[in-house]
Design a protein around this nucleic acid. Structure first.
Lengths: 193, 193
DNA sequence: ATTACCAGAATGAACGTTCATTCTATGTAT
DNA sequence: ATACATAGAATGAACGTTCATTCTGGTAAT
């Protein structure tokens, strides 16, 4: 059963290198060295580099999703739910900077574009907690009547930007600042009185 | 005098390829082919690929800045000025998708991080119209009392996200939607009543 | 004749991937 | 208990390709 352990070593090494140096700064040889295995060994666990990267992403998405849903209660008011989710996302990114940097690399690459297209236009119809939240908000006229994509942008755009800036050391996000940032995002989304 | 023309051909070809395929999808040989010059010729105009990329960026930043300032009047109210700038940024990105894609590639690379660090912490102290706007807004308590970096994130995060989504075809931004998106960003920034 | 310039072949470094070989752990025979 | 046999995991040198950069030979202008 050391098999899973070794797979994990390789995955961790790859994630770390890609997060720090980008896809092209993480050659297979370097991943192998960091994972303390032979270069060829990687191919016993992952068909090729593309597959490795996509599996890293899937694992990560799953982890992030489970964190988001922890303590999420669909009965609470819209705003409270939004702030719960936003703060959770931000906290996850800040405390798992390698994960965040990897996600960014992924999203800013052809892999990410394909993935996002699939997500937006059917294909994978896994229920998306954010989408549900927005649809509910639209229905009860609590948030602005804008296309779903724009709502996503208003919610996530600032969060991703500040998360990056925190990790790069351009700002220090403490609990209070996280809260206030997410509340500001909500102000952007909600219908103004 | 064809010298400048040829430099321009090379620059345009490089920008186009990098915008479409990323830094690693734009080998020098391909740039040369697209510019209809020999591979070695590029090195008569740019010392190496790094220099080429950085000069592309400087040129682009200058162009964008001049577009932003066109029709900008510092006498108008804060909100009107913010919306003018935001809409101008968004329109530029949409109508110059290659420029936008290049900027994204740049910002999501080590080049961009260095550049941003210099910009935030002294080094280059060129006056920044957005910074001035935010400082004025803070002074007259019109916008939220948050760190400058967070204000940037609230203003630009959504704009960059929707610009990318428009270019990828995930949404169609017309004049009205541009306006409403920028107004929503302002709602995020401004102090709520 | 001399100079300036250029195209494209040449170069060497670095990459992802393959594969012949070595190692290891477990089963079998004595 | 010990010696041997074997399946399959692990290895890293080697391959083919691709890249940025340099070199070379030739063309056009003066």
């Amino acid at each position: 059963m050391a098999r899973l352990e070794k797979r994990d070593e390789i995955a961790r090494a790859a994630l770390e290198l890609i997060a720090e140096n980008g896809f092209h700064g993480a050659p297979m040889a370097m991943i192998a060295e960091k994972a303390r295995v032979g270069a060829g060994t990687i191919y016993r666990y992952f068909e090729n580099k593309d597959v490795l990267i996509n599996e890293l992403y899937r694992d990560l998405e799953e982890r992030l999703c489970s964190v988001l849903m922890k303590g999420y209660s669909p009965e609470k008011p819209l705003r409270a739910r939004f702030i719960h989710l936003g703060a959770a996302v931000l906290r996850y990114c800040i405390f798992n900077p390698l994960d965040f940097r990897f996600l960014e690399q992924f999203h800013n690459s052809p892999y990410g574009v394909v993935h996002r297209r699939d997500k937006l236009f059917g294909k994978t119809d896994q229920k998306d907690v954010y989408r549900e939240l927005f649809e509910e908000g639209l229905a009860q006229q609590a948030i602005k009547d804008l296309p779903m994509v724009v709502l996503y942008a208003l919610a996530f755009g600032p969060l991703i930007t500040v998360a990056r800036d925190h990790i790069l050391g351009f700002v220090v996000l403490d609990d209070s600042l996280i809260e206030h940032t997410v509340m500001a995002c909500w102000d952007g989304l909600k219908r103004q009185a």
